[in-house]
Amino acid sequence: MTTATRGALRAPAVLVLEDGRSFRGRAYGAVGETFGEAVFSTGMTGYQETLTDPSYHRQVVVMTAPHVGNTGVNDEDPESKRIWVSGYVVREPARIPSNWRSVRTLDEELAAQGVVGISGIDTRALTRHLRERGAMRVGIFSGPALDGPAGEAGLLAKVQASPQMKGADLCGEVTTGEPYTVPAIGTKRFTVAAVDLGIKGMTPHRMAERGIEVRVLPANATIEDIYALSPDGVFFSNGPGDPATADHPVALMRGVLERKTPLFGICFGNQILGRALGFGTFKLKYGHRGINQPVQDRTTGKVEVTAHNHGFAVDAPLDKVSDTPYGRAEVSHVCLNDNVVEGLQLLDQPAFSIQYHPEAAAGPHDAAYLFDRFVSLMEGQRA
């Protein structure tokens, strides 16, 4: 991504999709050009958590809510140390943010971190296009980036030459460079080794609230690195990219399954468990993103409103128990909008995973019990 400084008086901008459709608006954030996969998020709030979620690496996020930036930006809510989205698309930016914790505007934050965005376009029309045609590559161009000799045809050629999400191996680009520890809050009860494939900050915090010391390891950690920590449980995080490329995390998870250590995976971690068990994965037409997705926990029958961010899913049978190298497995959760697999569990050892985000940052808290379920597995193993 190349960027210039924030454009005064909102420089002209254009968004160009790989199928040739374009939308003209004004620059929002940094001025320049950027490329990524165009996806839409249906959340009406929580934009700061969305922007800083490493799972959005190399994606251009279209906000379906028409008014974005109302509460500004603070220093408490980011899920990581930087904004990860490749670009940002809004209909109407807030002119004056209003929140007692706000320290700067969203526009200023995007510009400061070099994130090229566009405002003033028909995001409803863009979202409908992506629903009908599917997520696709996109470019946003503003300021001098609009002045190429070939005009919009030249911009389209740049978009079509940019990398696709299918086949992208990205977790190594977002993982921590060094191991670190999130201490337990209160009395320490357990130690969990967390493999960082693009972890959100709230996830180890939710475990710490339950007396878990979380030892976060890079994505290239070895099985020896994990068990050097003498963990009571192992966690595989969310993250970006195509799970079909994640051969090392799959092999690592198989090593954990062979030792029958309590295991919990979220989002990318769910896809990794699916592959470790022998299931395939596939790319969804336009994915699930936002904080209002209905999911049924098939073990209890309860329906939850949940927070999602995934463009790939596990291809596992919904209505039968499958035999795997690690015992019997079944689909534990399913999306009620489209019957996509949203969770897996093993029946013969303590391992399960979820496709969505129970840490609820930002989002509903219906799924917080899943962290308690992980604690119960570790308690049972210790007993």
Rank of each mutant, 00 (worst) to 15 (best):
E379F: 04
A351D: 04
V61Q: 04
V138C: 12
Y88I: 03
G198H: 07
M378K: 07
D319Q: 05
F235Q: 06
L170R: 05
E359V: 01
A246V: 06
V174R: 03
T5Q: 09
P350L: 14
A4M: 10
A246R: 04
A246I: 08
R206S: 04
T127H: 08
L146Q: 03
Q59F: 12
G114C: 07
D232A: 02
N99C: 09
M63R: 12
T299Y: 00
K200G: 07
T127I: 10
H248I: 05
L51N: 04
H129K: 11
P179E: 10
R206C: 10
Q113A: 11
F371Q: 07
D366Y: 09
P12D: 03
A351Y: 00
G143S: 13
T306P: 03
H248Y: 14
R24L: 05
G134I: 11
R82E: 10
R95L: 14
N270K: 06
V303N: 05
Y356T: 09
A125Q: 12
I212L: 06
T3W: 04
A361H: 13
Y28T: 09
T261Y: 06
A150P: 00
F282S: 13
Q160Y: 01
I96W: 15
S237F: 00
P350R: 13
Y88L: 08
I226G: 05
I140V: 07
G25E: 01
V31C: 11
L155I: 05
A168L: 13
A383N: 15
G20M: 12
V138K: 09
S86W: 02
L277A: 13
E37N: 11
F282V: 07
G151C: 07
G167L: 12
L318N: 11
V159D: 02
A30F: 06
L284R: 15
V60R: 09
F23K: 13
G151V: 02
Y286R: 15
T299L: 15
G7V: 04
A221W: 04
V340F: 01
G211W: 10
E213K: 14
E92Q: 15
A145G: 08
T261W: 04
D323I: 13
G151W: 00
V115K: 03
E342N: 15
I212H: 01
A13C: 10
V73S: 02
R215W: 03
A94R: 10
K285E: 11
G139Y: 01
V14Y: 02
L344F: 00
Q349T: 13
E209I: 07
A38G: 05
Q160L: 11
P240W: 01
A251S: 15
Q355P: 13
M165A: 10
T105S: 15
H333N: 02
E76R: 14
M1L: 09
A168C: 01
R298E: 06
I96E: 11
V73T: 12
I96A: 03
R133C: 09
E132C: 02
G239A: 08
G29I: 03
V256D: 01
T324K: 07
G311V: 13
Q345F: 00
Q296N: 10
E76G: 05
L155W: 00
I354T: 12
L17C: 08
G311K: 13
Q355L: 02
T64N: 09
T123I: 14
Q381M: 14
G201L: 10
M253E: 02
W84M: 00
P231G: 06
E37C: 12
S119A: 14
